[in-house]
Structures are given as C-alpha cells and as structure tokens.
C-alpha cells in the first residue's frame, strides 16, 4: 500500500515538473539577440580607460602626473610627459594602455587629480592579437592638441594675470593699510 502511494506521489511530482516546463514553453524567450539588439550598458560600466573632454579646455586635462601609472596593479598604463612653454603643468606626450592586462579595478580613476580619466563605452572590442589591445589614448586628441594647447596657454595666461592682479591688489591694499597705519601713528 505504501509503495502504491509512493509511486503515485512520485508520478505526481513528475507531472508537476512537466507542468513548469510546459508553462515556460509558451512564454516569450528572454534572449537578447546580441548583434541585432544591443545590451543596455550600465552608466558606470567599467571598461578601457579613455581621456575625457573637459569643457573649458576642449580637450583632456591630463597633466602627466603619473599617479595612475603608479597605482595600477597590472602595470598596464605607461605615460611620458613634458613641460610645454607657457604651461604650469606637464602635458602627456604618450599615454599608452595595454588593455589586455587591465583588470578594470578603477583605481586609476580614483587617484586622477584632474578627473580626466573615464571609461570607454565600447564594450565589445575583440581582436586577433595582443597588439590589438594596445591603445594609444592620445590618438583621438591629436588633431585638437594644438588648439587645446592654445586654450590652455590662454587659461594659464588669464590665471597668471589674475594672480598678478590679485598680488598687485594685495600689495596696494597692504601699502594702503600701511599708509593708514602710518597715518594713525602720525595722528
């Protein structure tokens, strides 16, 4: 008797399982047909790093401080920079990323003092060799580099003028104060 009820229960559980699969049979597939539909990428999706445009410069604002190169656990960033005429900070001459080594930890973004590093939005890059993943991050900024340098110099000049003006104003104020002091003393 027990055996019969076991068999009955067993078959019932099997039928229930079949009920689940047949219900799904008539539902819509959840597949995203990738090359035809693009996956929606998260806003903070981590990817290869890029130099992002700063509005006031019209180009990136990398100052070749090498912070990202130093923090990178995988040694995948290499930067050389040099001082340009009329600029207070350095400017990178090369900014190479070996994306094949990158582990997308995001530490370089954390340390960037000018916040000019960001993530690329291209998530489906593929290649046939390691060399395909050696990115030159300055590539996209080559064309506008001269104008950017001009803008930077302009900004630098303005800043300098401002500083001069402030210093002058400070000095005048000081002198004035001194005069006043002197006046007070005299009085």
């Amino acid at each position: 008797m027990e055996m019969i009820s076991d068999v009955y229960r067993g078959f019932r559980s099997l039928l229930k399982g079949m009920g689940v699969t047949i219900r799904h049979f008539f539902r819509k597939p959840v597949t995203v047909e990738y090359p035809r539909e693009r996956a929606v990428v998260s806003k903070v999706q981590r990817n290869a790093i890029v130099l992002i445009e700063k509005d006031d410069i019209g180009s990136h604002n990398c100052i070749a401080c090498l912070q990202c190169e130093k923090i990178c656990p995988s040694n995948c960033i290499s930067i050389t920079g040099s001082r340009k005429d009329g600029l207070a900070f350095k400017r990178p001459d090369t900014f190479d990323l070996n994306f094949a080594l990158c582990s997308e930890c995001g530490l370089c973004l954390d340390v960037c003092p000018t916040d000019t590093l960001g993530y690329s939005k291209q998530y489906d890059k593929a290649g046939y060799s390691r060399e395909d993943f050696f990115y030159d991050l300055l590539d996209q900024w080559k064309a506008t580099e001269e104008t950017a340098l001009g803008t930077l110099r302009e900004i630098e000049r303005k800043k300098k003028e401002e500083r001069e003006a402030r210093r002058k104003a400070d000095a005048e104020a000081k002198a004035k104060a001194k005069e006043n002091d002197d006046g007070d003393e005299k009085a």
Binding site: E69, K70, I71, C72, P73, S74, N75
Partner: peptide, 8 residues
C-alpha cells in the same frame, strides 16, 4: 614588484 610598491 608593481610600481606602486616602490615609491607610491
């Protein structure tokens, strides 16, 4: 060693 290990 990784660069950061040296002097960062």
């Amino acid at each position: 060693p990784v660069k950061g290990g040296d002097d960062a």
